[in-house]
Design a protein around this nucleic acid. Structure first.
Lengths: 335, 335
DNA sequence: AGTCCTGAGGTAAGCGCTTTCCTGAGACCG
DNA sequence: CGGTCTCAGGAAAGCGCTTACCTCAGGACT
């Protein structure tokens, strides 16, 4: 492993000079020495040790991102936005998957803290478990106390900078839509009840139902396609009069569609998130759109901007209902 | 920012003792001191500086991953496999998106090199441009020369450890399937011609066509849904007699399906990769399956294993045709 | 001619941690 | 009771870099 000292020796200069030339410091250096040093760098294939640089400079460059799972399209979209802004600012992004485990999330906060990242962005629903939440908060505060910045996406219980998608409002839009189509009983297929996202979206759904005199039946499962398929299969079998399903995310909605196909039934399904697949499934999925990439961009922007005042900055991002072909008036369901 | 020295002072011990206690070194320490130090750690919210540790220990822990784009489902699946194995081995994963730009890829290799990662996994098609390829090779060799390990996924031109999906064979399977259904002219909708993946899959397609006396028409575009949709729209408009499309990845296939729907035409479409959506689009997509997660797992395993001998290890991963509903015999196309 | 700059380059002090080697105090032995 | 072992704990030497500060010419001044 070639070190700066090797390069300096090779070029017959001091490490100080070598360092200055390599980093393009403002200090003037003879053209001749510059050439010698650069030649040595090339010949020895010298790559500076980033850790040593961090230590010596003590400036933080990387940013950390904690998501539930990057390979989940929801987070993939958000991550895309995060990356875009980070890269535009010349920052290295370290992505960590918490797999919805508060313990792992804490480990990652410490790990990113240890790596002296400039900022951490945490995306994805918070946890209702208040013990876990407060321990997480503790960790975050410790990180912030050292000058690190934190921004969260979709965690309204977090006191700092945050980008908040309108989950309650989105739930309301979905519920209202179904109610207006004449559905009086709606099966909500939801993710884990311990996630605030689940709770918020359900709250919106309930608000709409109350307003329209409809009733909601909630079933919980995984926030995945297979979770949605399993639940829906059961619901369809148990209740032949079921006419509408509100899925709390698109993955579950896609699963619901699959179960419907299997059962040969046609009922209204509305999804949530409007992920890219929504328009390609059959029937094309009516869904509550959340501008995921924008969510990521705004969060990273918050995380990198030095925070003008001291009050936490909170940005609300609205939801929007995208009408496609998976919902029908109650009395006009196909077949 | 609390340092080890702060903790030591706070606990009234030397930094040596503090370090040993915190890292659970084998060196025996009185229970009393241990307690004092741990108390100080908690009180000061001390988190060790990972860079300083790296420098002092000079053991490499993290691993780097370079993919074209994590938010692309293809890479998301691979990344999932990579992460699984890495996490199981207690490694931190740093993910970098090259966005199919050889220049950025080189930058990232250097960056990961600078960060002293133990290994780098590079996933995704190589580049036909031989200047870029050889410069990349140079960078990789420099990294390996310092003891770093490299594994690639799907780059047969790379001389080291590699996991190679059967792209040519997969193309052959797709082509053979369409030919056996009686299609004599096949439109191949392909990604950028500069990617080896494109070239390999096309080669397989051509082999099958030659064997069955069919002809292939190739059109290039982006390896994306929209790329596939645009091309297919044009093809359908230009050639009313078109009966079969071989898409070189599932994203393009999904786009092709969308274009078909728009045009109200029904022809055979076969995809490639068998991504999760394939079964949820309508008609469910017949596709050449590549076990993406496994690809990732095996590559990470190669990257972390110290390489038994000195010969490069190459693992071939077979492709498999998954029959669904998007292909029909030529003379029985619906409508 | 002597003083002062000025500019190019080097010296060395850290950055925060690990780890080798050393110290000093008991425990144990003959 | 002196000598040797053992063992807990500390001093200090780096790890590879950056950078404040110093040195030393050579030229511009008075």
């Amino acid at each position: 492993m070639a070190t700066l000292a090797d390069v300096a020796r090779h070029a017959g200069v001091s490490t100080a000079t070598a360092s200055r030339i390599i980093n393009g410091s403002p200090k003037p250096v003879t053209e001749q020495l510059r050439a010698r040093v650069l030649a040595a760098v090339a010949e020895l294939r010298y790559v500076p040790n980033a850790h040593a640089q961090m230590l010596a400079r003590s400036n933080r460059n990387a940013v950390g991102v904690i998501v539930h799972d990057v390979s989940d399209p929801y987070f993939a979209e958000i991550t895309r936005g995060l990356q875009r802004v980070a890269t535009a600012n010349g920052r290295l992004v370290i992505i960590c998957n918490s797999f919805r485990d508060p313990g792992r999330e804490m480990e990652y906060i410490d790990l990113l803290h240890a790596h002296q990242v400039a900022a951490i962005v945490i995306a994805g629903s918070g946890y209702l478990d208040s013990a876990a939440a407060s321990e997480l908060d503790d960790r975050m505060r410790a990180f912030e106390a050292t000058g690190g910045r934190i921004a969260v996406i979709g965690r309204h219980q977090h006191p700092g900078d945050a980008v908040l998608p309108a989950n309650e409002e989105g739930g309301y839009l979905a519920g209202k839509h179904l109610c207006e189509l004449g559905h009086t009983t709606i099966a909500a297929i939801a993710g884990p009840p311990s996630l605030t996202t689940t709770v918020d979206r359900l709250a919106g759904l309930h608000r709409a139902a109350t307003e329209h005199g409809a009733t909601i039946h909630v079933t919980h499962s995984d926030f995945t396609r297979d979770g949605g398929e399993a639940i829906t299969g059961k619901l369809l079998a148990d209740d032949p009069s079921l006419t509408a399903i509100a899925a709390l995310n698109d993955s579950m909605a896609v699963g619901a569609l699959a179960a419907m196909r299997t059962a040969g039934r046609h009922i209204s399904v509305v999804g949530f998130d409007d992920m890219p697949i929504a328009r390609d499934v059959t029937p094309a999925l009516t869904s509550v759109r959340l501008p995921l990439t924008e969510l990521g961009e705004r969060a990273m922007t918050l995380a990198l901007d030095p925070a003008a005042g001291d009050a936490p900055r909170v940005e609300h991002v609205p939801a929007e209902l995208i009408l496609r072909d998976s919902t029908w008036p109650r009395d006009q369901l196909p077949r």
